[in-house]
């Protein structure tokens, strides 16, 4: 590399190092603000305590549980639907439907989260209230249903890329042996594409857990520990939004940084899983 390119290289390097530093910086910032809790040894007890500010209890256990239950339930509903759609889009459906379906999936990925939430509030929640669960209709099940739809396009796109990324020569071999498209899918594509399937699933879980709006609008935001899927619940993300809106200082405020730290660590975990599974494919 010649000396004449040094200016350009320096500018590019600055942009890269700057953005990289910010990513780490966010974590350090939250760690710094949550530090008093960490060194007093309260961080881990916070994860197991309830949230009762009146009794000086600022635990985030209900939110941790809420986030986990809602996102896992959303995955449980969304995963089979996404897998089925991905199967249809890669092999099962007739060709004209495949490209139409790909375009629809992209459009779906573009629908704003807040629009999903809005429709859910005026469409799904009344239905839930009157026909299924009773009560307010704002509960874990409603939120999980909406989230399942919300995370579906992310997963479908990953699955479709994985399934259609299997080498053409293998695919031709199965065709030449007289295999049907479904047989090709079951005996060739699925076993070959499992890293992409894992990655897509984890991506979906990550999106469900990271979403703020749906749980804020549809899950009911109750701070009690949920006991059933028809109970109202609050997620870590919604908790951050709600507490900030109410208060700027003190223990309450400090405790939302523990929510932030937990969410950050979850993201790191998800990204590591995705990176590790896609690495095994390359070897």
């Amino acid at each position: 590399m010649s000396r004449e390119d040094l200016l350009q290289k320096t500018i590019l390097l600055c942009a890269t190092v700057g953005s990289g530093t910010l990513v780490v910086g966010i974590f350090l910032l939250m760690l710094h603000l949550g530090w008093p809790l960490l060194i007093s040894g309260q961080f881990f007890s916070l994860l197991l305590q309830e949230w009762r500010p009146a009794d000086n209890l600022y635990g985030i256990y209900p939110m941790l549980l809420g986030s986990t239950v809602i996102s896992l339930l959303a995955l449980l509903i969304g995963l089979p639907i996404s897998l089925g759609t991905a199967f249809a889009t890669t092999v099962v459906a007739p060709p004209w439907l495949r490209s139409a379906s790909l375009a629809l999936i992209r459009y779906m990925a573009g629908i704003p989260t807040v629009v999903y939430g809005f429709v859910a509030v005026f469409f799904l929640v009344p239905f839930m209230r009157e026909q299924i669960t009773g009560g307010s209709g704002l509960n874990i099940l409603s939120a999980a249903l909406v989230l399942a739809i919300l995370i579906a396009p992310t997963m479908v796109i990953f699955f479709v890329n994985g399934l259609s990324g299997v080498a053409k020569t293998y695919s031709l071999a199965v065709d030449a042996l007289g295999g049907t498209p479904v047989q090709k899918l079951l005996y060739l594509l699925l076993p070959q594409a499992w890293p992409a399937l894992t990655a897509g699933t984890v991506m979906g879980l990550g999106r469900a857990m990271g979403d703020t709006l749906i749980s804020l609008m549809v899950a009911g935001n109750s701070i009690a520990v949920p006991g059933a899927v028809t109970d109202s619940a609050r997620t870590l993300t919604a908790h951050i939004a709600l507490v900030i809106a109410a208060d700027f200082a003190g223990m309450e405020f400090m405790s939302i940084f523990s929510c932030g730290i937990v969410l950050y660590l979850f993201t790191v975990l998800f990204v590591s899983v995705i990176r590790l599974t896609s690495k095994t494919r390359n070897d």
Partner: peptide, 12 residues
Amino acid sequence: LFDVLAGLPSIV
């Protein structure tokens, strides 16, 4: 690192 950024919840 940028994958982590892409995955971070926007509320964070």
